[in-house]
């Protein structure tokens, strides 16, 4: 039986009727039409589907849309404000933190969470903080530098 959910996505409230089994990531991509959040695996490992739910980075492939009811969601599309890139987005561009770009939205959301909790992380802390996000292109080094760039920028 379908259920009604109310969520705020990137600052905009909305209401939808969804099957309880609908995964949050499918809800975002197929119902809301926000396709920046990607799906890279089926086992909650790759992190391409990472979004912020009530301020916490989560894997939207491992959450039912109904579990997000009444929640506030930020996706990659909602990260820039007034056309200005978030420092983590900027860092990824400046430091070549992406190649094919598929892991990138999730990677950026994870980067945002790392810096929310630790504004001045070490390289090791960044690498540990990315445990839940796989990238096959970059070897992560430029991703680490991108997050360091953002950390620096956000501190100053």
């Amino acid at each position: 039986m379908k259920q009604v959910i109310q969520v705020t996505i990137n600052g905009k409230p909305r209401q939808d009727e969804v099957e309880p089994r609908l995964l949050l990531v499918h809800y975002l991509r197929d119902v809301v039409g926000l396709t920046g959040t990607h799906i890279g695996c089926e086992t909650s490992i790759c992190g391409a589907c990472t979004v912020l739910l009530n301020g916490a980075a989560v894997k939207s492939c491992t959450i039912l849309a109904v579990q997000a009811n009444k929640g506030e969601i930020v996706t990659i599309e909602g990260l820039a404000t007034n056309g200005k890139l978030h420092p983590v987005q900027e860092g990824f561009w400046e430091r070549h933190g992406l190649q094919c770009g598929f892991c990138t939205p999730g990677m950026i959301m994870a980067g945002v969470q790392i810096l929310q909790r630790n504004p001045n992380p070490t390289e090791e802390q960044i690498r540990e903080g990315l445990e839940g996000n796989l990238c096959r292109c970059t070897g992560y080094q430029h991703i680490v530098e991108a997050i360091q760039y953002a950390a620096q920028k956000m501190r100053t």
């Binding site: 991509r29 039409g33 599309e77 820039a80 987005q89 990824f92 770009g101 990138t104 939205p105």
Partner: peptide, 21 residues
């Protein structure tokens, strides 16, 4: 040189096959 591809990729506006509706 910073990549010309990146703005769409870091803002979630790029379209991979499954993004095409």
């Amino acid at each position: 040189i910073k990549r010309k591809e990146d703005p769409r990729l870091i803002t979630g506006t790029a379209s991979y096959v499954d993004d095409i509706k």
